[in-house]
Simulated scan of single mutants.
Amino acid sequence: MQKQVNKRMKKIKLGEFFSGPGGIAYGAHLAAKKTQLFELEHAWAVDNHASTCETYIRNIKGASPDSVFCEDIKTFNFQNLNNIASNIDGFAFGFPCNDFSLVGQQKGMHGQFGPLYTYGIKALKQFQPSFFIAENVGGITSANNGDAIAKILHELEAAGYSITPHLYKFEEYGVPQARHRLIIVGIKKSLDLIFRVPTPTHKNKFKSVADALEARPIASNAYNHDKTIQSPVVVERLKHILPGQNAWNASLPKHLKLNVKGAKLSQIYKRLEADKPSYTITGSGGGGTHVYHWREPRALTNRERARLQTFPDSFEFMGSKESVRRQIGMAVPPLGAKVIFEAVVKTLLGIPYSSIDAPSLHGKGR
């Protein structure tokens, strides 16, 4: 039986690094609304992408140009955070995944982005919040032969936290997308509490893309819902690709085949399957990577991608069409963040919840 920390928890003040458009923060607000156990208070957020910061400010309650810093974390002055909130209860950081993604070169700690997690460690040591939530791609567990994740976990523990890393398959929690992400939850050791992975709610009853996109039709004037004008050759190619197929395994006429050598990504011109979750929504990539409708010969709109990421239609992304695509693909699904925040708060309050025994990642690669 875990001890209760605070039966009357009223507010959780949240700080964020690499905050993106606000998927984690919005999910935390959803958790607060559902559980009625706490009120989320935005403290500050840092991200280095201008349109992304504008999106965060527009949609996250309490956020303002004074509390959202659009700066490079490598040159950011931490004193700016002290001037706003000298203490926070929770800290979230989805440190950049570029060097850990299986799609990229997987440079891990040797890349430009790999070491950026250390700024999260610095924030933990400075602010000592009661808990943190860190997020990255599943590929981080194999980067640098497993040494990268071992080093990160060791440093998070050394900062004073009991940690529970787990590879979440978000389609098992009601997200209509096969999105697999490593989430590390840490609880301050002095609280003598252990976070447990919440039990999947949709393991045998996935939400499909048709559930997400058609059960409640998107209004024609919804935010970020402009359709891409497909070229005639792309339309013709898509008409030969069946749901679930891509440009490599479909039966394409010779003039529609792609002249590509080397690695052939399975998502190139891959069409969705109406009765299954989407494949992973990405934030970048050239032709053929925009996620394709199962019935209509076209790429999804940004609003449809946002639906598959569980952002509500009222959530307005700012910036150019390609910038919005980037923001959506890089974000944490709010519904996934909601599930994790619910479990974190119940852990802090000593409230039981359904959980599973997660495989340990401690010591991986060593």
Rank of each mutant, 00 (worst) to 15 (best):
K338D: 08
K11T: 13
F69L: 05
H180Q: 13
L272N: 03
P165I: 02
A215D: 13
T280F: 05
A178D: 09
Y353A: 10
I184K: 01
F18P: 03
I194N: 14
G111D: 05
F127H: 02
L256K: 08
N144C: 12
G120M: 06
E71L: 04
F91K: 02
F113L: 12
T141K: 09
G111P: 06
F315H: 06
A25V: 07
N136C: 02
A343S: 13
G27M: 07
K13S: 14
H255I: 07
F315G: 03
L348R: 09
K264S: 03
R237F: 09
R196D: 04
F38W: 14
A331K: 05
I133K: 04
L213W: 06
S284D: 02
W294T: 06
V185G: 01
V332L: 07
I268D: 01
G365R: 07
W44S: 10
Y56C: 06
K61L: 14
E41T: 12
T310M: 10
F100E: 00
P176N: 10
L40R: 14
I163K: 01
L40K: 13
G90A: 15
E155L: 15
P176V: 11
G363E: 10
K257H: 03
T347K: 04
Y56S: 06
W44H: 13
S101Y: 05
L361I: 09
F311L: 11
V291R: 00
S19Q: 05
G23M: 01
V175H: 01
T228P: 01
F91Y: 11
N83G: 01
R303E: 02
D192S: 14
F127Q: 04
G27P: 08
R326Q: 13
E236G: 10
Y292V: 08
A31W: 10
G104I: 03
I281K: 01
Y117M: 05
P253Q: 08
K151C: 04
A215M: 11
F170S: 05
G94T: 04
V345N: 07
H255K: 14
A219G: 02
Q128L: 12
I121L: 15
F195Y: 15
A50W: 09
Q309C: 03
C97G: 04
W44N: 10
L349F: 01
H225L: 08
I12C: 08
L153W: 05
C97S: 07
